[in-house]
Write a protein that binds this DNA or RNA. Structure first.
Lengths: 136, 136
DNA sequence: CGAAAGTGTAACACATGCGATTACATTGAA
DNA sequence: TTCAATGTAATCGCATGTGTTACACTTTCG
């Protein structure tokens, strides 16, 4: 969904877009969008002006924003593991396996980000536009 | 968690282990374990005997089971996207972006699995054991 | 055979997280 | 000043995952 929002911003390059317009595009609520925009602001991916006639726009050109950045900005914690899960001290495996799994998962997530890094927002917009053409 | 269970099975190589024992190791309920075992059975990763003196064991040696298989067996698709999310038909971006994003996500997940494929259950058990040594 | 051990499975409570909605204070441009 | 739009909190509903109990069915073993 974050990508969707950013894609719209990339589409209207430079033009500030309000959260109401974005919400309309994603078919959701302006508040949801604003919460998402906050994350993106903290990641310095967008800039938002307040007040009347306000809105958000990309702080960089779409060619310079890759999806790994978006992923990191939005995805709050690791998709794996559960923190509440405490292993049984009596089990010889349970005691030591957690750190091992963390290493594996870190590696896997890194691989995922490496792949996402290969695609920029501009790529997404271009591909989406081509897909649209083919459908029409 | 699935990896944890399989690691225990790999640890007691060959020996059938009951869901009660596994649950004790992961500090959870036998039913949770059994539900998980069902997925692993369908993926042909383990075999389970019913009745008295029953239990589960790996259907292959730990060296021949990689974590990508475990991931596929357990993680019901798909980690990204939300199916209920229908874009606004009026938005020029929203209409065409979904297929594009699916492609990107498929690629990313593939990259993740490629990385997981590099680690076998035997690797996990060995590394965990080494970690244990260092701690002691 | 029959009892005991374990799995398969359903039903339900509970916690968690996310999206949706409403409401309101605040900001900034016209 | 006015008004559009953001920032933010509170709350509800829904989906999902976990925990728990209960029970039928299967298999081994005495």
């Amino acid at each position: 969904m974050a990508v969707h929002v950013l894609a719209v911003l990339a589409y209207k390059e430079g033009d500030p877009v309000t959260s109401a317009k974005l919400a309309d595009s994603v078919n959701t609520n302006p508040v949801i969008i604003r919460r998402l925009l906050l994350s993106l602001q903290q990641a310095r991916l967008i800039e938002t002006r307040k007040g009347a006639g306000a809105g958000s726009r990309l702080s960089r050109s779409p060619q310079r924003i890759n999806l790994a950045e978006v992923y990191r900005a939005v995805e709050r914690h690791e998709p794996f593991s559960s923190p509440n899960n405490k292993p049984n001290a009596g089990c010889p495996v349970g005691n030591c396996i957690r750190k091992t799994l963390e290493l594996v998962f870190a590696s896997a997530e890194s691989a995922l980000e490496q792949d996402l890094k290969r695609t920029t927002l501009a790529d997404v917009v271009r591909t989406a536009r081509e897909t649209c053409m083919k459908a029409a």
